[in-house]
Structure formats: structure tokens, C-alpha cells
């Protein structure tokens, strides 16, 4: 697999150098792998720190900025960052009002953020944690590591970020983040596997004419493989997988997310089908985001995320945001 890189060993550091060059409004510590808002710590504001393996860009570094994350910690490709990064980030953004860790539910991320929380508290930083686990494709929570954190991470980071920007206390920001996660569900499909720079070839073998249903964002195969379906059929399958788990009574935020290698032409066509299916199922859509936001390197495919909202969540969603990957209202 050809890749636009120098060598596999330096892909994360190289990308961080590029982030630094492109975004002077961020402080990018390439050596210690922390991306921080340049104006941090902001007085009297809860700090928001997230992080995870690289390969999901723009998540999380692309969501650092006003109205969203205070800092992000990128790990190696598909590998959780280490506690040292998170402690450094927490110290950089804490104004004394505490720090919220936003953690996607993967074994490694959970362990490293838990260790970091203990270390940060030893340094006198008040830390709260919220776990994102929105992926309905993981059906058996008793015999697995539990539902994975995917697209809902964007909703949690945006809404908690707006709440923190308004000066809400840590307990309130944490409660809102938890509410967003509890009201969110996701489902993803892959048309091709992704290739990690370290391996250089696809992480699993997906024959031509087949797709994977219920994939994660780390190149792991899904729960089920089927002959290729049309965009309309995939939309029906994904929407119904979500609605089987959560039947929204309120309007929803909708994220139609590309996995990295699916052209926007296809993604918008898919979105048209999703819109049709949601209307047929009487689900009202309040806001829509279509694009590549929570990716899996060069995987082709898409995921859907629905978040049931109320007036406060919608107000916080609409609040101004200025980050490399998400910006409106300012």
C-alpha cells in the first residue's frame, strides 16, 4: 500500500509538526505529544482533555479550540496515549476549576486515563471522567470489553466544550457529557479494510463484492459480512440497528461520518438515503453534520450517529466553536 509518509515510525510526529505549522492558534508539543489551546488555561473555565490513538483524524486534535476541547493527547496509530501525556495536558489547561477527561471506551484508553487521573489528582488537579460508549454493533456487553466509543465522541466534546466555555462548574459539564453519551447511538459499515503505516497492508481481508457490518474504528472487522448492498439498503440496516436500541422521542443530532476513504459524493448520496429512512421511521432531525470526522485511516465506509437532544443540548450544540475541524458562529 502506497502512503504519503516519510517512514512509518514518524507518522504521528510528522502530522503534529504539520498541525503546528497549520494552526498557530494551537500549542503543539511534538515531543510530548500534547495539543493545547494557545490561550490555556482560560480563567474560571473547566478544562476538557481527550485523547486516543492516532488514525481517527480530525478526532481529537482537530477539535481543540474555543468552544470544544482544551487539549488533546494523540497516541501512536490506534494505540492509546500514555498517562504522562494526559497529566501534562491536564496541568496545562487547569484553571483551578477542574478538568474533565473524555475517554472512548477501549481497554487501553480506559486504563491509561485511569492512571492519569490518579496522577493528576496527586498533583492537586480535580479530575472527572466521562466514558463514551455509543456503538450498538457491540451487542454482547457481558462477554466483550463493552460498547465502543465512536461518533458520539464528537457530540460529547462539542456540547461539553460549549458548557465549559459558558463557565459551568465541573459537575455540570460532566453531567451534560454523560447525558449526551447516554442519548447517543452509532453504527458503522466498512467497504474496505484500512492499512496501518506499521503494517503497510490491510489489517483484514475483505473480498471484493462484500462489506462488513458493525465495524469499529481500529481496522477490526465487524460482526457480520454480507454481499455488497446499495446505499439505500445500508442506510436502512444502519438506521434500524440504532432504532432497535434507542427509539428517539425528541429530535436528533445526526452525524453521517466518512471512515476516511469514502468520497463526499458517496457520503452525501448515503446521507440522502439516511434522511429518507429516518423520515419513514418518524425520526425528526434537528441538525446534521456530513463529513470525515471520526475516521479509521484509509478505511472506506461510513458510520451513523444519532443523539437525542433537548433544548439545552441544542443550544449548546449551536454555540460558537472555533477548532481546525469544526467551526461556526465566530
Amino acid at each position: 500500500m502506497k502512503m504519503l509518509i516519510n517512514v512509518a515510525e514518524t507518522v504521528v510526529a510528522d502530522a503534529l509538526r504539520g498541525m503546528a505549522a497549520a494552526h498557530p492558534e494551537l500549542t503543539v508539543d511534538v515531543e510530548n505529544r500534547v495539543i493545547v489551546r494557545r490561550d490555556a488555561p482560560v480563567d474560571d473555565k473547566v478544562g476538557l482533555v481527550s485523547g486516543g490513538g492516532s488514525g481517527h483524524e480530525p478526532l481529537h486534535g482537530g477539535f481543540v479550540g474555543r468552544g470544544m476541547l482544551s487539549a488533546a493527547c494523540p497516541g501512536e496509530v490506534f494505540t492509546s496515549p500514555v498517562p504522562d501525556q494526559m497529566v501534562r495536558a491536564a496541568a496545562a489547561v487547569d484553571s483551578g476549576k477542574g478538568v474533565l477527561f473524555i475517554v472512548k471506551n477501549y481497554t487501553g484508553d480506559v486504563m491509561n486515563f485511569d492512571m492519569a487521573a490518579e496522577l493528576a489528582e496527586d498533583e492537586g488537579i480535580q479530575v472527572a471522567k466521562v466514558l463514551v460508549d455509543d456503538d450498538v454493533a457491540v451487542t454482547d456487553s457481558l462477554y466483550t470489553a463493552g460498547r465502543r466509543g465512536t461518533g458520539a465522541t464528537l457530540f460529547v466534546e462539542k456540547i461539553a466544550g460549549a458548557a465549559a466555555e459558558e463557565g459551568m462548574p465541573l459537575e455540570r459539564v460532566e453531567a451534560l457529557a454523560r447525558q449526551v453519551n447516554e442519548n447517543s447511538r452509532s453504527f458503522g459499515v466498512a467497504l474496505s479494510a484500512c492499512s496501518t503505516p506499521a503494517k503497510g497492508s490491510p489489517t483484514f481481508d475483505l473480498p471484493a463484492g462484500q462489506l462488513e457490518l458493525g465495524i469499529g474504528i481500529h481496522g477490526e472487522p465487524g460482526r457480520e459480512r454480507r454481499p455488497m448492498m446499495t446505499a439505500g439498503e445500508i442506510a436502512e440496516f444502519a438506521v434500524d440497528a440504532i432504532l432497535d436500541d434507542m427509539r428517539p422521542r425528541n429530535p436528533v443530532l445526526l452525524l453521517v461520518n466518512g471512515m476516511g476513504a469514502t468520497p463526499l459524493l458517496e457520503l452525501y448520496g448515503f446521507h440522502a438515503e439516511v434522511t429518507r429512512v429516518l423520515a419513514a421511521r418518524d425520526v425528526a432531525v434537528a441538525r446534521v453534520l456530513v463529513g470525515n470526522y471520526v475516521t479509521s485511516l484509509d478505511m472506506a465506509g461510513a458510520s451513523l450517529t444519532l443523539c437525542q437532544i433537548d433544548e439545552e443540548l441544542l443550544r449548546l450544540w449551536d454555540a460558537p466553536v472555533r477548532t481546525p475541524a469544526l467551526r461556526w458562529g465566530m
Binding site: 490513538g53 501512536e76 492509546s80 487501553g108 486504563m111 491509561n112
Partner: peptide, 8 residues
Amino acid sequence: TVGGASGP
């Protein structure tokens, strides 16, 4: 230095 689950 490791990260992931195997580091911890």
C-alpha cells in the same frame, strides 16, 4: 512509553 492496554 507503550500506551494501549499492554503498556499499563
